[in-house]
Design a protein around this nucleic acid. Sequence first.
DNA 1: TAGCTTAGATACGAGCCGTATCTTACGGAC
DNA 2: GTCCGTAAGATACGGCTCGTATCTAAGCTA
Lengths: 211, 211
Amino acid sequence: MGREPAARRRGKELEEAIYQAVWDELQEVGFTKLTMDGVAKRAGTSKPVLYRRWPGRIELLAAAAVHFMPDRESIPDTGSIRDDTVALLSLMRTRMLTLGRSPMLGLLIHVSQQPEAEESHFLEQLQRNIRNLMTNVVIARALERGEATPEQLNDRLQMLPIDLARSQFLLTGDLPEGAITEIVDDVFMPALAGRAGQVRDSGARPGREGK
Amino acid sequence: MGREPAARRRGKELEEAIYQAVWDELQEVGFTKLTMDGVAKRAGTSKPVLYRRWPGRIELLAAAAVHFMPDRESIPDTGSIRDDTVALLSLMRTRMLTLGRSPMLGLLIHVSQQPEAEESHFLEQLQRNIRNLMTNVVIARALERGEATPEQLNDRLQMLPIDLARSQFLLTGDLPEGAITEIVDDVFMPALAGRAGQVRDSGARPGREGK
DNA sequence: TAGCTTAGATACGAGCCGTATCTTACGGAC
DNA sequence: GTCCGTAAGATACGGCTCGTATCTAAGCTA
């Protein structure tokens, strides 16, 4: 007569179900209304199971995000810094859309109030990864190709496309294809060209190397 | 025997005290722990008084921010687009530091989940105001001076310093003097120069002017 | 089969939410 | 000065979420 209680899950199987519950709950009620009770209920488990694994909802969210984050880490060599940068921003787009705007803002708030935040390891790791791809792959290739010189590429300039992409996403919640090409073609490439025209700041001699 | 109950405040006097309480509470417990109970208690009043005026804590926070926001709206004419831009970013810096990183992120989350959000009128108003100062003052002056041409200045490029400044603030919680000059001198001015060198997009041939 | 780990159920106190109710201080009208 | 309407301030409430404590029994391991 008593209904069959669901089989008891453990380890990876259980965690996977919890992550899925987090993701579904995010989709359904949104970040601000994401609760531990809600996740536990949806996952068919109970709160203590969650608290045994994560300190709180932010850390649980971060873990779920890690779990669902696509982990493509390579930028195809397109042959030009322009297209490589577009590819990098597309990767950024994929990741940011996976995480979502509110969760990303939520993680940022958490970081901003708990500077040591081990849990935000995740956000910083994404950030660091993107940064490395820019400097060690896109820029490095550009230097090899002779598309740019080291003096030309200060830190700000190297991070320019990334910063603009993140800014756009945090403000609008999206990073459309068109925005990417605008960032690259209307800002980044001109900025590179501008620095090329006056390679050394001291000897600024605009427009002397002839077209 | 009974202690003298504090004199009952009304109107502007009361609201001022509430705003001050919000600000103090923000300072003391931080954005995520800012509660209506806490504000009411600190202001020496009670929750119904707050809820009669604002729908919730986010709206109360926004109102307090408006109240404390310095309202300098002018950018001195420094004689160059470079220095005008620095002045604009300094204004942005002042405003963002007044609001604070977490509150700004919190308002952004609120906007992101309630798109119509009338209350975030405040954030968008700040944004719009800065935008207007950039296009209608800084850029307009530059065009008058002949420092730039209209074709040179697409939307992305015009918003570049603002976007970078906001990005920096949201990530680090600050916008130091040095960051401002880097944004302007290492990115914005070169980008302008780059667009000047190749006014029409059709002729853009990146990486061809090298040695 | 015995025993250990831990999933899952349940209950709890605490804190905050937003609202309802009530008293009473204050300000304006006369 | 008196009367009255408005709104401040106190209090209490139900509801939700938090994070934890306690207990059971399921399932793995020896």
